[in-house]
Design a binder for these strands. Structure first.
Length: 548
RNA sequence: GGCCCGAUGGUCAAGAGGUUAAGACACCACCCUUUCACGGUGGUAUCCCGGGUUCAAUUCCCGGUCGGGUCACCA
């Protein structure tokens, strides 16, 4: 192989690897350099958020750098606005970059460009050098050729599969043959001339799995595709070298290509970075577990959490909880600390792939919301509703004071809400001023006491004192109970329920259902004071009507 | 199928050659209580299977089973 062939293959490439080595010098400082490198193929997956969060954490806690690199070498899969979608989604979850694209065209950072489609000449300069050095060669095999090779290999039964050894037909083409193919205008890919030895095992270091023993790569993998763009493997080696990534933290699915990547780094003369392969987030599907699927599982999309209104902090905390068992105790000791201040040791990361657990997320979310102030909640609910529930937003805006006053009713000393979509849904009697309770049924145990219900509600209306405070109000409820012969001491009632026609709890329940339409609510007195005496009275009257 | 990774309650998991095998979520009971929620107390439930090493194995080793990943000119 020769310089001449290399020139023929890449006639327009005049830069050498040395040029780029000089252009992109090593970074200052000893911090760790990490990156998130997604393909802009649509929405952000929860696993992508997970990975980026961890990368961000590692860079930040070491005083290093974290950058975004767009892997857009597959022209077929590109999606319009794919880059902006990713950046926006990440930003919504507080993942920000030190370097990388801002939007579809602009970017910042000393190692630009950060879009692989813009780095074509860089990859080609290295590919050209590899060809010159005899470490790579052009391959003219068609898809059909490849299929035939595969078919023969399967028949042959030797167990080898793929473009390698004697099957690699273009590996030993002479310069003359190559020139002939080229002048015939045949398209080509460039393949690495693998130096791996068949069957030879080797240990590869992984910061999460430890030493992983795998066979050396013997495949002559494609490094440059027919369209001149690099494959993932090649771009990874070139970019992470030139951008000086120190730690490659990525999804588990890459573990099996580690031999290829290490080989690439070594043949290119690069230092091999530290690798960490993160376990995927799983889903329990019936009795089997599988990876969260974009198509089947709404929770796979990061946008799902915003739409349903989980607080961003809850999602972040949940992801970190999955990531390291040390996070929860840390959070317990530092309840209000920024999640990014957690010091993560990748060695503590689980190796088996956590099942996504909504119960746990909900629990974290409840506590996050519980710790918020009423003002913060007001802002968060309004922001959520404005984007995802315009009717509810209009309601809030129509009477901000009313909504503000309602928050402590369900927030004070309570953990009722896990996500903002539950607010209007859980308390229709507060947030729907035309709410009609008359169709709502009493709990089953009280359903046959219609006469009592009617009478009690009428007694209540007759004795209602708008000026009464909470205690006086409840004293009145008790007195109604007493007049009806209902037990007013719950302890006593529970010991001997058959001795009474009912209890104060039942009286309260008649009122609760008449006023709210529900059997379970926060403090009734507060609700009445929020919706107003008149509204409460109106609902009770309607309810009495219905009882007939 | 080849190669790789993994397996501790329902879920997330700590853990060490000898432990009453942590903790969190969920669940259940009780207390508190006008419902629910909150809070409190207590509870049910786990080391995948078979060999080997050892005085001793859930822990180390080897098999198996099961689950996951990967075998592209996709990333």
């Amino acid at each position: 192989m020769s310089k001449r062939i290399a020139d023929l293959l890449f006639p327009n490439i005049d830069k050498t690897p040395e040029f780029y080595e000089n252009k992109y010098p090593a970074r200052e400082g000893a911090g760790r350099v990490t990156r998130f490198a997604p393909s802009p193929t649509g929405f952000l997956h929860i696993g992508g958020l997970y990975t980026s969060l961890i990368n961000r954490l590692i860079a930040k806690q070491s005083g290093g750098a974290f950058y975004l690199r767009i892997e857009d070498t597959d022209q077929k899969r590109l999606v319009e606005n794919g880059v902006v979608d990713i950046i926006t989604a990440l930003k919504q979850f507080e993942v920000e970059f030190d370097e990388g694209p801002y939007d579809e065209v602009n970017e910042h950072g000393a190692y630009a460009p950060y879009r692989q489609s813009l780095r074509k000449e860089i990859y080609q300069a290295y590919a050209k050098q590899l060809v010159t050095d005899g470490k790579a060669y052009p391959c003219f095999c068609t898809e059909e050729d490849l299929q035939n090779i595969r078919a023969e290999q399967e028949k042959d039964g030797s167990g080898t599969l793929g473009y390698c050894g004697k099957w690699a037909r273009c590996r030993d083409l002479t310069d003359e043959q190559i020139e002939a193919e080229l002048s015939a205008g045949k398209p080509f890919v460039v393949r690495l001339r693998s130096e791996g030895e068949a069957g030879k095992m080797r240990e590869f270091a992984d910061g999460i799995h430890g030493a992983v023993s795998m066979p050396e790569n013997i495949l002559d993998i494609v490094i440059t595709k027919q369209d001149g763009l690099p494959t993932y493997h090649f771009a990874h080696a070139i970019d992470d070298h030139l951008m000086h990534s120190t730690d490659i933290i990525r999804a588990d699915e890459w573990l099996s290509s580690l031999p290829i990547h290490v080989q690439l780094f070594e043949m290119l003369g690069f230092n091999v970075p530290n690798y960490y392969h993160l376990s995927p987030i799983m889903k329990l599907d019936g009795t089997s577990r599988r990876k969260l699927s974009k198509r089947k599982d709404p929770e796979a999309r990061v946008s799902f959490y915003r739409e349903t209104g989980y607080p961003v902090k809850a999602v972040i905390d949940y992801l970190l909880t999955i990531c390291s068992a040390k996070f929860e105790p840390w959070r317990a000791e530092n309840p209000s600390a920024d999640s990014l201040d957690f010091t993560l040791d990748l060695a503590d990361t689980g190796v088996s792939g956590a099942m996504f657990d909504f119960d746990k997320l909900d629990n974290i979310a409840k506590n996050v919301i519980g710790a918020m102030t009423d003002d913060e909640i007001f802002a968060a609910v309004l922001a959520w509703a404005t984007e995802f529930a315009p009717d509810f937003a209009a309601f809030i805006n129509s009477d901000k004071d009313y909504f503000m006053r309602s928050i402590p009713i369900w927030h004070e000393k309570r953990l009722d809400i896990k996500k903002w979509s539950e607010v209007a849904q859980l308390y229709p009697y507060m947030y729907n001023k035309q709410y009609d309770t008359s169709a709502c049924e009493m709990p089953e145990r009280m359903a046959d006491r219609k006469a009592d219900a009617k009478e009690i509600l009428e007694m209540y209306l007759a004795s209602y004192d708008p000026a009464a405070d909470s205690d006086a109000w409840f004293a009145n409820v008790k007195s109604i109970a007493e007049q009806k012969g209902y037990c007013i001491k719950m302890g006593q009632y529970k010991k001997n329920p058959d001795a009474f026609p009912g209890s104060v709890a039942d009286v309260s329940m008649f009122l609760r259902v008449a006023i709210t339409g529900q059997a379970n609510t926060p403090d009734l007195y507060k609700i009445i004071k929020l919706i107003g005496d008149e509204e409460a009275e109106k609902r009770i009257k309607n309810y009495i009507e219905k009882i007939k």
